[in-house]
């Protein structure tokens, strides 16, 4: 049963991935911008990106709107997100600080960086996946907390 679920999941992953890459391609070829979620949000938060705030807000509006449309046809609303406040706050702070110090996240370094064979993108991706894997191992396999 689980095997069947995975067989479908990888296909959804691939199709969804193609759309993610298409979004990045449109943003790059259309506006000359790199589609990095942490940079687009972070620039609005710390003020460094207010000179092109409208473009950032338009992009983020699209990110919010499309899932609302998709969910009308396909209930894909399961997030399995924890309700442990300490865990959520710690995770949010780490993701916020880390992506801004590294100047990129899964979309900027991962999708946009690796696809142009950027050494920085590749190294960043190796390190956040390794750090994530070790954190999961510690908190799930060893401590059994998450």
């Amino acid at each position: 049963m689980e095997n069947i679920a995975f067989q479908i999941d990888w296909l959804y992953g691939l199709i969804g991935g193609l759309f993610i890459g298409l979004g990045g391609a449109v943003f790059l070829l259309g506006n000359g911008r790199i589609m990095g979620a942490s940079g687009l949000i972070g620039g609005l938060v710390d003020g460094s990106g207010w000179s092109n705030a409208a473009e950032r807000i338009a992009f983020l509006a699209g990110v919010v709107i499309m899932p609302i449309i998709v969910l009308q046809f396909w209930d894909r609303s399961e997030t399995n997100i924890t309700d442990n406040v300490v865990q959520l706050v710690a995770a949010g702070l780490l993701v916020g600080v880390g992506t801004r110090i590294a100047n990129g996240c899964t979309s900027g370094h991962g999708v946009c960086g690796i696809s142009r064979l950027s050494l920085r993108g590749i190294v960043a991706t190796v390190f956040y996946i390794m750090a994530g894997g070790l954190t999961m191992a510690l908190f799930r396999a060893v401590l059994g907390w998450i």
């Binding site: 979620a37 942490s38 949000i41 983020l60 990110v63 919010v64 499309m66 899932p67 997030t79 399995n80 997100i81 924890t82 865990q87 959520l88 710690a90 995770a91 949010g92 702070l93 780490l94 993701v95 916020g96 600080v97 880390g98 992506t99 801004r100 110090i101 590294a102 100047n103 996240c105 899964t106 979309s107 370094h109 920085r120 190294v123 960043a124 991706t125 390190f127 956040y128 996946i129 390794m130 750090a131 994530g132 894997g133 954190t135 999961m136 908190f139 998450i146």
Partner: peptide, 26 residues
């Protein structure tokens, strides 16, 4: 900064299973 930031990000990513893009999409 690239290394330290990515390690910090990876830890938070694992803790909640969210990175910036999906957190906005959801």
């Amino acid at each position: 900064n690239l290394i330290v930031g990515s390690v910090i990000f990876g830890m938070g990513w694992a803790l909640a299973g969210l990175c910036p893009g999906p957190s906005i999409a959801a």
